[in-house]
Simulated assay, not measured.
Amino acid sequence: MSPNVLSQRLRELTEHGVVRRRDLGPPTRVHLYELTEWGRALEPILLQFGRWGSQSPQLPEGALGIDSLLLTIKAGFNPARAADLRGVYAFHIDADTYLAEVADDSVQLRRGTTPEPDATLTTDIDTLRAVCGHQMTLAAAVDAGVLALTGDKDATQRLTDLLLAPFTPRAFADDGT
């Protein structure tokens, strides 16, 4: 998408109350766009749209970015498994850190850190794509030294289950299982 098209789309979304713009002061001097409460209400619709799209008979071209991979985790999350997966998990992907918090019947994903996650996954985006896309097993990535899991055995297993469940065949079945 060209910068002009992106600017126009952000302007339209702002005018319609879906996002709001915040200007960060010095030294960054950047514009930050965030969803409004009304914009956040779109999340269930977008996640359902993702579930629908995952059943496409044709695979999309191109590599998924980190945001798409994380949205896939959120869209593929089965609320019935929340009690089994409860915890706070950190994903160190390249130079960025993301948190997944499983509580009640949902998973919340965001950028950020926490002092003591239950388990942590550290890798690069290419390895994460390969593991999620079943081109490499998690064990092979760990053995090759390109992925590290830290935390106690139960917590790292929960993190692994949370991460990989949406990427298994038919993960987005009609019944959500």
Rank of each mutant, 00 (worst) to 15 (best):
M1N: 02
M1P: 02
P3K: 05
V5W: 04
V5Y: 08
S7I: 03
L10Y: 08
L10K: 07
R11V: 00
E12A: 06
L13Q: 09
T14G: 04
H16G: 00
H16R: 13
H16K: 10
V18A: 03
V18L: 08
R21I: 01
D23H: 09
D23Y: 03
L24W: 12
G25V: 08
P26A: 14
P26G: 11
R29F: 14
R29W: 12
R29N: 14
H31V: 01
Y33L: 03
E34Q: 07
W38D: 00
L42G: 00
P44E: 03
I45S: 08
L47G: 12
F49S: 10
F49A: 10
G50L: 14
R51S: 08
W52H: 10
W52K: 06
Q55L: 08
L59W: 04
E61Q: 11
G62I: 01
A63M: 04
L64V: 02
L64D: 05
G65S: 12
G65W: 02
I66L: 14
D67E: 14
L69T: 12
L70Y: 10
L70M: 15
L71T: 12
T72W: 07
T72L: 12
T72V: 07
A75Q: 09
G76P: 11
G76Y: 02
F77D: 11
N78T: 11
A80H: 15
A80Q: 15
R81G: 04
A82R: 15
A83E: 15
L85W: 15
R86S: 14
R86I: 13
G87A: 13
Y89V: 05
A90D: 13
F91C: 13
I93P: 14
I93N: 11
D94A: 08
D96T: 09
L99W: 09
A100Y: 09
V102S: 08
V102T: 11
V102A: 08
V102E: 08
A103M: 09
D104A: 12
S106Q: 10
Q108D: 06
L109E: 02
T114Q: 00
P117S: 00
A119K: 02
T120E: 01
L121A: 03
D124H: 07
I125S: 09
D126N: 09
T127K: 03
T127A: 00
R129N: 14
Q135F: 06
M136F: 01
T137G: 14
T137I: 07
A139Y: 03
A141M: 05
V142S: 02
V142A: 06
D143E: 13
A144N: 04
A148H: 13
A148F: 06
G151D: 02
D152I: 03
K153Q: 15
K153C: 08
K153R: 15
T156R: 14
R158E: 01
L159I: 11
L159Q: 08
T160C: 00
L163R: 06
L163W: 02
L164Y: 05
A165R: 13
P166T: 01
F167H: 12
P169A: 06
R170D: 12
F172T: 12
F172L: 07
A173H: 11
A173R: 13
G176T: 03
T177R: 15
T177K: 13
T177A: 13
